[in-house]
Write a protein that binds this DNA or RNA. Sequence first.
DNA 1: TGTACATCAGTGAACGCGCGTTCACTGATGTAC
DNA 2: TGTACATCAGTGAACGCGCGTTCACTGATGTAC
Lengths: 243, 243
Amino acid sequence: MASDPAPSAPPAPRTARQRVRAELTAEITAIARRHLAEKGPSELSLRAVAREMGMASSALYRYFPSRDALLTRLIIDAYNDMGDACDAAVDAVDERDHLSQFQALAHGVRGWAVAHPQEYALIYGSPVPGYAAPTDTVDPASRVIRRLILLAITMNEDATAPIGPVAIPEMLERQIATLLDDESVTIDRQRFVIIASVWAQLFGMISFEVFGRYDEMFDDADALFAVQLELAAATIGLTSSTD
Amino acid sequence: MASDPAPSAPPAPRTARQRVRAELTAEITAIARRHLAEKGPSELSLRAVAREMGMASSALYRYFPSRDALLTRLIIDAYNDMGDACDAAVDAVDERDHLSQFQALAHGVRGWAVAHPQEYALIYGSPVPGYAAPTDTVDPASRVIRRLILLAITMNEDATAPIGPVAIPEMLERQIATLLDDESVTIDRQRFVIIASVWAQLFGMISFEVFGRYDEMFDDADALFAVQLELAAATIGLTSSTD
DNA sequence: TGTACATCAGTGAACGCGCGTTCACTGATGTAC
DNA sequence: TGTACATCAGTGAACGCGCGTTCACTGATGTAC
């Protein structure tokens, strides 16, 4: 019964109409993505996209039911783009070298953010007013932290005991347990809290850089990031003595 | 010559006109601030403010030359508000208890941010498109980091040697020196880098909380913040053994 | 204390712009026999 | 292979909205003599 060709996700467009439809949908999102990159989320307008496509603005409603739907598409794409960059960076490194893996993750995410500042702002900046993220964004949105947690798990062996220990309140303890149960993953609570901290730190640094807070302070953002990363690695208990 | 009553900043409005003008200016910014708090920066509109004041929209141009000028006013006020909250929190604590001072600073800033999410977004979120911050914002914008650096200086004595040391590249080293010379302040370079890290971490955590990134993960933001703060304090070399 | 002039606050209409979304419609593509 | 009908893509006009900013103007407040 369920072995029919899955009706929910048609494998490839067959008719000419379907092919054109897929192409146009891709073109719309591509143009929208470029507008976003040039002007920022709040300036993204259906009419401008339609204008550039040479279509009537009403025609876009055959492809996206509303402006928010288009925005959602861009948000999901941005999360996945960043997730891909993150994964690719980590995977390019010897999987036994945990320090390098961690650094690769951080540099991967930062590199993507610096190269796509507006898309970064869209997903890690202030929430777009009046826009409520639908549930399909939740999964792509958590790719980086999930990868970071995975890293932390494999690290458990060789990392030296980091700073701490800190006292974890009961409620938080329960929350973490639930979270990790959902992911069916086991990790030392102390390390989890540290990872969450480093996670916030990583995106704090990136936001500062991308949003221009270092502008009047530091010229050499690369060097600053590298040094801060070294500190963060030490926080987790990773030092360069791995090889 | 320069001993005349300073013409640049009249001490108190004398004529009725001047008094009314000051009051109306204050009322405009107050209403604008409320609109900002309710809707976000990009929704702030001169016309809406004028409507609520019962004036013609053109009348606002007697008080602010443009929408951007009003926005600048709000940005400066927000920075100063946060700076005040930060200072008040630190000052309320025994100045010899450096751990408590650090925690007070963090909680002060976070408390303000959570209570004023849109104003926080205005100054620490994605840049407002098309808006270029004038130079008068630079000073208020750096109040928190300046206070944090001051804290770090007085800490130099009792803090245990923190993690590290890290290698600081030459260029960054020079940059830091220039920065600190401007403030005529001396501080160990290692500690400075750590402070910059903790600074980014603090605002990373706050942004995550205020922008809703913890929403699907943690209920108890207070507990999470407290634990992460403990870690951060340990990073600096502060532990609860101060008393 | 009173008058003449300059300064300023506020009005209301207008300019010119852009937006998201709806709707009745034409004409082309796909499908079933 | 050909015809009849259903589906879909795209049009263009319109609705209703809001915005920042300018401008000539009235009428009130302040100032100098």
